[in-house]
């Protein structure tokens, strides 16, 4: 497949990344859809109100809380899990690019990827400025 397993071309790397992104979006959408169906069945008769901002409960804000909610088939938790998968896709893209640059022994871009990754993880872990 690759002429030289240690020398991926940029094009090969990007094709790989592109396909990974598409698959993760499909997975994310299916999880959101599943949670959405359960949510609609469960809350069908209620009236949503988004006029007043209250903020989401603690368990829907953090990675660990969302995972706990999804395991107990909590519909809003499952949707949130799908959204988390979606938010993770660009993060996975940066990680893949990091490995690709490492294989190409491109030190500058390994560092560049690490910086971007740090900002993303900082933000996802509830980073506050």
């Amino acid at each position: 497949m690759f002429k030289n397993s240690f020398r991926l071309t940029d094009q090969q790397v990007e094709t790989m990344i592109g396909n990974l992104l598409r698959i993760s979006v499909i997975i994310a959408a299916l999880v959101v859809l599943l949670g959405g169906v359960i949510y609609l069945i469960h809350f069908m008769g209620t009236h949503p109100d988004y006029r007043v901002f209250t903020g989401e409960p603690r368990d829907l804000r953090t990675v660990s809380g969302i995972l706990r909610d999804s395991l107990t088939i909590h519909s809003r938790g499952i949707i949130q899990l799908g959204l988390l998968v979606l938010i993770a896709t660009p993060v996975a893209r940066v990680i893949l690019a990091l490995f690709a640059f490492a294989l190409q022994r491109d030190r500058i871009y390994v560092v560049v990827c690490l910086i971007v990754l740090t900002v993303l993880i900082y933000s996802l872990s509830g980073g506050r400025l």
């Binding site: 959101v32 949510y39 988004y50 989401e56 829907l60 809003r76 949707i79 996802l124 980073g127």
Partner: peptide, 12 residues
């Protein structure tokens, strides 16, 4: 997400 601005019922 961490601030609680992502509502599943709306984002879905």
């Amino acid at each position: 997400l961490n601030r609680g601005y992502v509502d599943p019922g709306l984002a879905m």
